[in-house]
Design a protein around this nucleic acid. Structure first.
Lengths: 166, 166
DNA sequence: CCTTAACTTCACAACTTTTTGAAGAAAGCG
DNA sequence: CGCTTTCTTCAAAAAGTTGTGAAGTTAAGG
């Protein structure tokens, strides 16, 4: 019934599903766990950027437990937010428009950890050694990246704002 | 014998080992497999940035097979190069000074994969939908990042050259 | 309040990845 | 040439991760 005579069909569920799995695979390559990656990709490709737990389980063919685990991770990392539909016990999960901004910003915490590990290394190998020089240079690189990343995200924000107010 | 009266001891093997494992942990968090991460960290902290297979296995307490697998991966990704000591069957592995430069550059291939996945998504969800707008914006973000990353690495290279010729 | 839908938690099973030991191949050295 | 050291490969064991079913918790709706 839904298949019949509706002009060129805009949304091809099979193609969307292929995209979801493909993009989730790329996210997995980049280090995200599989299930969170699949859930995130599904939300990204959903019409309104909002899906219920049941819809997610249904589309991805996984148990409610798997969805639960994935969205817990995703909301902890601020990649999706949960909302309660008033007058219902269904929970809805939403992707944000500033998701990537958030994701990159979170990387900065990771960078700090690397820097602190390197500082320990610098003292451990002893002053004046080639190893010390190497570790210092590495530390410098990370410090450079941190500053650059901040600038970069500022430029992205400005660019977004310019496009929005156009 | 080696322990006795040598002024303030420069290199504390135990502290170095702690650093190696700590830093390897950070690399693992970032998605690198454990053994390559440990080998890379050990090389980074080594005196000359060069170690033999035996030295690596010894320091990390793993079998030659594990070292072999790790260095194969690391040399494929250009983070480490192998060199044969002339007149010996020992292989030596070396970290490069431009290691991080290489690592970031390699990320750009990954970015391209993301972009191509997103382009598939844009056609799959159908024209004019909110999903299409969302995916296009995401694609734009990745394109932005790719350009910025290139610029950033150019600036790092220039900074390095300036420091070298000082 | 009791019923029931919806989500969560947890122990365990299925699956993946990692590391190993053992056998094999390459290459210096006598 | 053949012995020996060193690295590599491969099957299999060990370790780690992920997803499930079942039981438990929470809160809406009668």
């Amino acid at each position: 019934m839904t298949e019949a005579g509706k002009s060129p069909k805009e949304r091809d569920p099979e193609a969307v599903s292929r995209f979801v799995e493909l993009f989730a695979g790329r996210l997995t390559d980049a280090g995200m766990a599989r299930m969170p990656a699949r859930v995130f990709a599904a939300l990204l490709a959903s019409d309104d950027g909002v899906l219920t737990s049941a819809q997610l389980g249904d589309q991805l063919r996984v148990s409610p437990a798997a969805v639960s685990g994935a969205v817990r991770y995703l909301s902890q990392t601020h990649l999706v937010s949960r909302e309660r539909e008033p007058g219902s016990r269904r929970e809805r999960y939403r992707v944000h428009s500033d998701q990537w901004y958030e994701a990159v910003t979170n990387r900065e915490a990771l960078l700090r950890h690397w820097q602190s590990a390197l500082r320990e290394g610098v003292t451990a190998v002893g002053a004046g050694s080639p190893a010390e020089r190497r570790l210092r240079e590495t530390l410098e690189f990370f410090e450079f990246i941190e500053v650059e990343l901040t600038d970069m995200m500022r430029r992205w924000r400005e660019k977004r704002e310019a496009a929005a107010g156009r």
